[in-house]
């Protein structure tokens, strides 16, 4: 087994310390930082994401795999910066106004990072205007809103409306998710993407980049 495959496998098993060590070793052996990222870390997260979508693994496995990815990515960061590496896209994520429950939001963040996105994490209880100003400031292609509660899901429409008012609606895709959200709700408020799990959300975000470019 090659070192990149080994990194991917260890990441899938959540072995953060070993991932970190092997990433350093791969760099020492002359493997480029971008190759380690793409074929080791992101490849491993891809497999975890796919398994998560198929209910072959669950949230705990995603969390430990994402931790391993982050530990590995920390080692790579300075090398990626030196090489002029560019992320696949930018997304800002947050829970909507009134909602403090951030597990879903954090999972989407991890999965987006696992797809090579640069993620601006706006945290919890985020007003609609804050999503819009962050998206404009960082040139985000994706705005991802999370809500756990039936009483806060309405705030997602405010994000869509604020995007229209500010003139950035055609430059971003708005992704919505959370326990009470479904496709019908997504359509009813004029958002672009709803998926039932974080891994599918990241896949759809990648697809959305293509449509924005075209």
């Amino acid at each position: 087994m090659g070192i990149l495959e080994e990194i991917s496998l260890l990441l899938q098993n959540g072995k953060a310390k070993q991932v970190k060590e092997l990433v350093s070793q791969a760099l020492d052996e002359g493997v480029s930082a971008e190759e380690i990222l793409q074929k080791g870390l992101l490849a491993g997260m891809d497999i975890i994401g796919e398994k998560f979508s198929k209910n072959e693994v669950y949230v705990p496995e995603v969390l430990v795999a994402a931790r391993a990815m982050n530990w590995g990515a920390e080692v790579l960061k300075p090398h990626l910066a030196d090489s002029g590496f560019k992320s696949k896209g930018r997304a800002c994520v947050g829970t909507v106004k009134g909602d403090l429950h951030d597990i879903g939001k954090n999972l989407v963040k991890m999965m987006l990072e696992g797809k090579g996105f640069e993620v601006i994490d706006l945290g919890v209880d985020v007003p609609a205007e804050a999503f819009i100003s962050a998206a404009a400031e960082h040139n985000c292609q994706i705005i991802a809103c999370s809500a756990l509660l039936t009483t806060t899901m309405g705030a997602m429409k405010e994000v869509v409306d604020a995007a229209k008012r500010s003139g950035i609606r055609d430059k971003v895709k708005i992704l919505v998710g959370g326990a009470p959200i479904n496709k019908e709700f997504c359509e009813s408020i004029g958002a672009d993407i709803y998926t039932s799990d974080a891994a599918s959300a990241a896949n759809e975000a990648v697809e959305a980049l293509t449509s924005l470019v075209s």
Partner: peptide, 10 residues
């Protein structure tokens, strides 16, 4: 559990 299944390693 959450909507995506168990919150504990199976």
């Amino acid at each position: 559990c959450c909507k995506n299944g168990p919150l504990i390693s199976m």
